[in-house]
Write a protein that binds this DNA or RNA. Structure first.
Length: 579
DNA sequence: GGAGGAATAT
DNA sequence: AATATTCCTC
């Protein structure tokens, strides 16, 4: 490490005798009580600091003015005859801008506060212990960091830490030199430079990440379908999506993931078919109506663009979508879920699941599907966090949760809500008209969504796999920490408002936040950030709420099913397309 | 010289 | 795991 040299240009800590950082710290002690003065001097010297004492505040000021660079830090008593310690504090802060530590026998909060308000970097109560003096250098260090302007708490802390460890015993010169500190800052500055741009427009340090919300994905899928799976390209998709802030790269990345997902499904499908002989039976309901079903290559018909090209040889299908948007959106291909479920052992769930499909009409069917697939709020509560996290969660669990679903009752509920959903959505600024318009309502969207990812396969396995993952994502994950931090910064700047989710918010929601956040369940979020005391976390949590499809707690009371359900859907969907 | 897309990085 | 970036090919 670099040693602090006595001849540093800036003259800091220039002690002829010591070159290790804390050692040689030039301290000016001011106290009208000679006894204390002596004691302090002794103690400070023991710390290897260079000590200068004076019993008069005025005298201290004089010394300081004479040579502004002669001291690194000032320790002053509060009660002095010639001048109020606070006054001195103020002067020093004004003229020399040196860190000042106040001390007194009086620990009254108001006084301490006064000292701090006047700029004291610390307030020590007499009797003062070595321990307290030993670390006063930290104030100098901190100040320097700040001065270096682009002080970064993190690095600063690290450096500080290092210094402390290394310097504690003043044994070696294992300390960071001021120069180093400075360099750290510089590096920091450089880094921040790019960030700054983003900061400018409310974004945090890093480039915002695009969160592929259900809406976005839906658009994506729609575009893919319109173009034709075999002809798609990021650019084309991007153009069709008409999402201004989205970039080709974003789309490319998503497409990559999408393809990966599909291929994985395909793979699984293949395996399955081979092992079990023939693939799944056709899904139950191929509803002529609007539902599309997937499975078997045969059903590709009615879509303008069936994206089955992906599937291959074996003809097992990949997936189809109703391409044309129009109201066609509603029809999603729901097959998969059905199939999966039916296969699953737990009878109760199966029954419920199947039923809807076979008998319901398309629109209803889709609802039903949702119901089946998505655990309702009840489920939420029932899902054990632990298990959810586990990779092998499984069918059993899923089934369990499914069996708990209040399908019938819920279904009705949902339908009703659905009618309101549009209103809700519209009222929610976070969703732009365009977004709302194309799709009749969220449910259909989800249905479509699900189709995209799930329909291709009717494999239970895939469903199962995804589920656990999704749960994982539901739980606050650390990965989001970084993005979130950033985003919060942005939010902070803009004054995030939970009540008013504006387009901007939508934008932020999609660009600023970490992806996982979007699927975080309210419950977890709340738990999570209720534990946090700082603003960042609080907002982080709120953000999450917003992100999860209008999951505003305050709204929950009013628009129950819709919100709950939607959030659930979103989570499910997300998991679904998590490859 | 840009678009796609696999490989990598974060 | 989800996205972003990089890098190579066409």
């Amino acid at each position: 490490m670099t040693l602090l040299s006595n001849n540093m240009d800036n003259g800091c800590f220039s002690s002829p005798r010591h070159d290790a950082f804390p050692a040689g710290l030039r301290v000016l002690v001011v106290d009208d009580d000679p006894t204390w003065l002596r004691i302090l001097e002794k103690m400070l010297k023991k710390c290897l600091y260079e000590v200068t004492t004076c019993c008069l505040a005025i005298e201290a000021l004089k010394k300081l003015r004479e040579r502004k660079d002669a001291f690194d830090i000032v320790i002053s008593d509060v009660n002095m005859p010639d001048m109020d310690g606070f006054k001195l504090l103020e002067q020093v802060g004004l003229e020399m801008d040196l860190p000042v530590i106040m001390m007194s026998v009086d620990g009254e909060t108001s006084r301490v506060m006064k000292g701090v308000q006047h700029g004291a970097c610390d307030y020590l109560l007499k009797p003062i212990r070595m321990k307290e003096l030993r670390n006063i250098w930290q104030h100098v260090f901190r100040k320097r960091m700040h001065e270096a302007r682009d002080f970064e708490s993190h690095e600063g802390f690290e450096a500080l830490h290092l210094m402390m460890n290394g310097s504690d015993q003043s044994d070696d010169g294992n300390l960071f030199a001021v120069e180093e500190i400075t360099s750290i800052k510089k590096r920091k500055d450089a880094d921040n430079k790019h960030d700054d741009k983003e900061f400018g427009d409310h974004s945090p340090s890093k480039k915002a990440r695009v969160v592929w919300s259900v809406d976005l994905h839906q658009k994506f899928v729609k575009a893919v379908n319109q173009i034709g799976f075999d002809k798609v390209g990021p650019k084309k998709i991007l153009d069709l999506m008409t999402v201004p802030w989205l970039t080709r790269e974003n789309v490319a990345s998503h497409l990559q993931k999408y393809r990966l997902y599909l291929s994985r499904l395909q793979k699984e499908n293949d395996q399955k078919s081979s092992s079990s002989g023939i693939k799944h039976s056709d899904s139950p309901s191929k509803d002529p109506g609007s539902f599309s079903l997937l499975n078997t290559a045969n059903n590709k018909q009615q879509n303008d663009v069936a994206i089955d090209s992906f599937s291959h040889s074996d003809g097992s299908l990949l997936f189809q979508m109703d391409a044309p948007s129009h109201e066609g959106d509603l029809k999603g291909i729901v097959s998969e879920p059905t199939t999966e479920k039916s296969r699953t052992p737990p009878i109760s769930s199966q029954m419920s699941l199947n039923q809807p499909f076979s008998s319901l009409e398309s629109s209803e069917a889709s609802h039903a599907v949702f119901d089946c697939t998505i655990p309702t709020q009840y489920s939420w509560g029932e899902f054990p966090k632990g298990p959810l996290k586990e990779e092998q969660k499984t069918i059993v669990q899923l089934e369990d949760s499914f069996s708990h679903l209040p399908l019938h009752g819920t279904r009705q509920h949902i339908q009703v809500d659905q009618s309101q959903s549009n209103a809700s959505i519209n009222s929610n600024p976070s969703i732009t008209k365009e977004e709302v318009a194309p799709s009749l309502d969220i449910k259909p969207l989800y249905a479509g969504y699900k189709n995209d990812y799930v329909s291709p396969m009717s494999s239970i396995g895939s469903a199962v796999d995804t589920f656990p993952n999704q749960s994982k994502s539901l739980i606050v994950n650390d990965q989001s920490s970084e993005p979130i931090f950033t985003s919060t910064l942005g939010l902070k700047t803009h004054g995030f408002d939970l009540d008013c989710i504006s387009d901007l918010d939508f934008y932020q929601r999609n660009l600023l936040l970490g992806g996982e956040a979007a699927s975080a369940p309210l419950e977890d979020d709340l738990n999570f950030f209720l534990l946090q005391t700082d603003w960042y976390n609080m907002n982080f949590g709120q953000q999450n709420i917003n992100m999860s499809e209008c999951y505003d707690p305050r709204l929950v009371g009013e628009a129950p099913s819709y919100f709950y359900d939607s959030s659930d859907y979103s989570s499910v969907d997300q998991s679904l397309f998590i490859a």
